[in-house]
Simulated assay, not measured.
Amino acid sequence: MRTPLAAPHWTVPMLCQTCGDATSPSFDECQNCYTPLGQPAVTPGLETYSVRGIGLAASIAVGVTAAFYLLSSLAPVAGMVLARQAERDGNSEVLLGALLVEGLLTLPFVVAYLAAAVLVIIWTWRARKNIDAFPGALPVLGQGWAIAGWLVPFANFVVPVRVVANIARDSLWRRSTPWLVVVWWAAWLVFSVGERLFTRKNDLEFARLPETAVDPEDFQAYVDYYQGALGRNAIPAIACVVAAASFIMLIRKISAAQQDRIARATPAWPFAPVPGGFAPGAPGTFAPPQPVAAPAPQPVAAPAPQPVAAPAPQAAADTPPASPQVPPVAGGTIGA
C-alpha cells in the first residue's frame, strides 16, 4: 500500500512595512532598511514632525548664503579697480569706495547666514526627533544636541556632524555614514577655519597700508593688497560653495526619505471603512467609527380609492325561494 504524499507547505513571505521588501525569518530585521520584523514604519504613539517645508526653506537659505559669500569674496576686484582709478585721478578719497562696496556685500551675507543658521537648527532638531519614532534606528546623541551642538564653542566642530550623520544613516537606511556627510563637513571646516584665518590676515595687511595715498607707490600698495586678498578669499569661497551644495543635497534626501516613511504609517483606506469595524481590503487595520447619515424620508403614497359595490337588488316577492343546498356527496356534484 502506497502512502499518500503530504501536501506541499507554501509559506507567504512577510513584507517589510517600511520599505516593502520581502523579509526572511532567518534574520530578525529587514536586510534593506533594518526595521525589526513585524514592526511598523513608525512607532505608534510617538510624535513625528514634517521636515519637507522647513527643509526646503533651509536649502534656499543655505544657497542664498553661499551666493552672498561668493559675492563678498569678490569685493577685492572692486578695490583693485578703484585703486587704479584713484591713482589716475590722484585722489585718495576714491579708495573709500572700496570699503563701501565691501560693506554693502558683507551685510546681506551676515543676514542670510543668520537666517540659514536658524532654519538649519530647526530642521536638524525635527529630523533628529523623527528618528526616535523609527523602529530599528540607532540614535547616538540626545535630541538636545541637535540644537546645542551648533552653539557650544569647540563642540560645534564635532557634534553637528555626528548628529547629521546619525540622521542620515537612520533615514537613508545605511549602517555606515554616507560619503556626502563627509564631503559636507570637510568643506564646512575648511570654510569656517579658512574664513577666520584669512579675514585676520587681510585685516593685518590692510593695517600696514598708508592712511593717505600720495605717490604712485602708495596706490600700488593698495592694488597689491586687493590682489592678495582676492587670492586668499578663493579658498574659503570654494569650500563654502562645496559645503552648501553637499548640505542642500543632504537636506533634500533626508527630508524626502523621512516624509515617505511617515506617509507609510498613515492609514489609507482602499474602500469606505465600516463604521466602528475593520476596513475591507486592509486586514488588521481598524477603521474609526464614522457618523452614519439618517435615511431620507420616503414619500408615502396615498391609498388608491376602493370602488364601493352597489347593494344587490332585492329579490321579487313572488319569486320562489331557491331550493336548499344539499350537502356534497362523494362522487356527486354540488347543487340540485
Rank of each mutant, 00 (worst) to 15 (best):
Pro295Gln: 07
Val241Gln: 06
Ala244Gln: 03
Gln306Pro: 10
Gly20Glu: 12
Gly20Leu: 09
Ala6Val: 02
Pro135Tyr: 11
Arg128Ile: 01
Trp188Ser: 01
Gly79His: 06
Cys240Arg: 08
Leu96Ala: 10
Pro160Cys: 02
Ala316Phe: 05
Cys240Lys: 05
Trp184Thr: 01
Thr18Ser: 14
Ile147Tyr: 15
Pro328Leu: 12
Pro305Asp: 09
Ala312Glu: 13
Gly79Val: 07
Val152Met: 02
Asn130Phe: 06
Gly194Asn: 07
Lys129Gln: 11
Trp185Thr: 00
Phe286Arg: 03
Ser24Met: 08
Ala137Lys: 09
Ala137Cys: 13
Ile238Phe: 15
Trp125Pro: 05
Leu70Cys: 13
Leu71Asp: 02
Val163His: 01
Val120Arg: 12
Ala98Asn: 06
Leu96Glu: 11
Gln17Trp: 06
Pro280Ala: 14
Gly63Thr: 03
Val242Lys: 12
Ala86Gln: 08
Pro153Glu: 02
Arg196Thr: 13
Ile147Ala: 08
Asn91Glu: 09
Ala243Trp: 05
Ser72Arg: 05
Gly20Ile: 08
Pro108Trp: 12
Asp218Tyr: 02
Asp218Pro: 03
Gly276Arg: 03
Pro4Ser: 00
Ala265Cys: 01
Thr48His: 04
Glu47Ile: 08
Gln85Cys: 08
Gln325Asp: 05
Pro299Phe: 03
Phe134Arg: 15
Phe157Met: 09
Pro36Asp: 07
Leu138Val: 15
Thr177Ile: 04
Val94Gly: 06
Ala127Met: 01
Tyr113Gln: 13
Ala302Trp: 12
Ala268Lys: 09
Ala330Pro: 14
Leu82Met: 07
Ile254Asp: 00
Pro13Tyr: 10
Tyr34Val: 12
Pro267Glu: 06
Val300His: 05
Ile60Cys: 05
Asp21Asn: 15
Ala243Gly: 07
Ser50Trp: 04
Val140Gln: 15
Tyr113Trp: 13
Thr106Arg: 15
Gly144His: 04
Ala287Thr: 01
Val158Met: 09
Ser59Ile: 10
Phe27Leu: 14
Leu189Ser: 06
Phe157Asp: 06
Ala322Asn: 06
Gly231Trp: 03
Gly284Glu: 14
Pro288Leu: 02
Glu87Met: 13
Cys240Glu: 04
Lys201Phe: 15
Pro280Arg: 03
Pro324Gln: 02
Ala234Arg: 08
Val42Ser: 05
Glu211Ala: 13
Ile238Asn: 15
Arg200Tyr: 12
Thr266Arg: 08
Ala117Phe: 06
Arg208Trp: 09
Pro178Ala: 10
Leu250Gly: 02
Gln314Asp: 08
